[in-house]
Design a protein around this nucleic acid. Structure first.
Lengths: 221, 221
DNA sequence: GATAGTTTCATACAATTGTTTGAATTGCAA
DNA sequence: TTGCAATTCAAACAATTGTATGAAACTATC
């Protein structure tokens, strides 16, 4: 490989086009035109369109996961091996939200690409997301250390809900903005993170009896 | 229209195929083959493929919205015009979750179709979802009546988070099952609803000071 | 039972798409 | 320079897809 020029030109053109127009209506011809390379170059360098998309997604995905684990490590070190549940959840949802939210005009191509990936969910990306579980398991383990008294089921539900709130906020920030007529400030990223974390922490700690009673009562029906 | 036979055959074949195999790889030819009608029938009866998909989705969507509003009305009548926040949120997320969750083998075609629609988010469906805001506004109004002391921003966030938890649970129940190695019982639909509602209620009531402090502190940075 | 309107049908259209091919070009090492 | 591998290129391939067409079949009304 003399110089990655063609390869990187394809990658960045593809990321930008997918970010701008979605996976649905961007063709390889659009990409090679924007990258100013030959059509066959995509298959030569990546094998197929899906593998190109996959490479784009794994790159950004691994970066986010690294940030998450790094924040988790810092939190655990600060807590002498046991991080607070607040810090754990913050490490989980913080990098994703910071990466995708914020003033629309300031959003990087990478951010917009990841938002698209979150909304459209095309097959090659779905396949990769399915392998994300090992990564999440590390957070589940940390949560278990942080809240040893809590049942595993509750922890998993808490983790699930935290991710749900974060992802839906990314995916559908527009709806919340419209619904609230702009009064919910999605540009205040740290404020959003605080909200998601606060609710998640409450789900995992505050409502112990409440949830246990309700779910118990439900099951006994 | 002598008999809707062709029309309904197309609708139910399409719903089943989309439910089973997703929007991505079901063609009009697949649908007409399954419905045992002519290819041109789709364009004749629906105008276009997208309009067919739209009709499928609006039908199910309106049904869910009716259920939601009905539950809301019952709750408000029971509370003398002011429903409890618990009941409001239950009316919001209950119908959707009941419609889409439950034992996989017992799921109706309609349920599986709506799960697909939630996962794949194809353009005609996205367009319809964007018009859902008026419907949600009714729940926001009910919540406002139920929790007059709460700021509107908090209410919108609570509504947003409730829907986030419900939808992510539908969209990604598989991940939660795998992550928890089956210990999170997603077949206990009422139990799931209880969890979502309980967390949402806590988000809207329990943590008032906590969230206010945190968000406030954050904003002051 | 003729007629007008509706519905069905086979077929073709037109455009798009990812992929492949084989030759040309380039870059680098011997 | 020569030779070889890597890369680029134009062109074509092959398959799919939604849609349009115009004739045929059907239905119900008068």
């Amino acid at each position: 490989m003399a110089s990655d020029h063609t390869r990187t030109a394809i990658l960045s053109a593809a990321e930008r086009l997918y970010a701008d127009r979605g996976f649905g209506d961007v063709t390889l011809r659009d990409i090679v035109a924007a990258a100013d390379v030959n059509l066959a170059a995509v298959n030569y360098h990546f094998g197929s369109k899906d593998e190109l998309i996959a490479e784009l997604f794994v790159t950004r995905s691994l970066a986010t996961n690294r940030e998450r684990l790094n924040e988790l490590k810092l939190a655990e070190e600060a807590g002498g091996g046991r991080a607070s549940i607040d810090a754990i959840l913050r490490a989980l949802v913080g990098p994703t939200l910071r990466g995708c939210l914020g003033p629309e005009r300031e959003r990087s191509t990478a951010a917009r690409f990841m938002i698209r990936a979150s909304i459209e969910s095309v097959p090659p990306i779905r396949r990769i997301k399915n392998r994300e579980i090992d990564h999440l398991r590390k957070f589940a383990a940390a949560m278990k250390r942080s809240l040893p008294g809590r049942s595993e089921v509750d922890l998993y539900w808490g983790l699930h809900f935290a991710l749900a709130m974060a992802h839906q906020t990314i995916r559908d920030s527009e709806r919340l903005t419209k619904l609230s007529e702009g009064s919910c400030d999605l540009n205040d990223v740290e404020g959003v993170i605080d909200r998601v974390v606060a609710v998640s922490v409450m789900a995992l700690t505050g409502g112990e009896t409440k949830i246990a009673e309700k779910v118990g009562a439900q099951r006994a029906r």
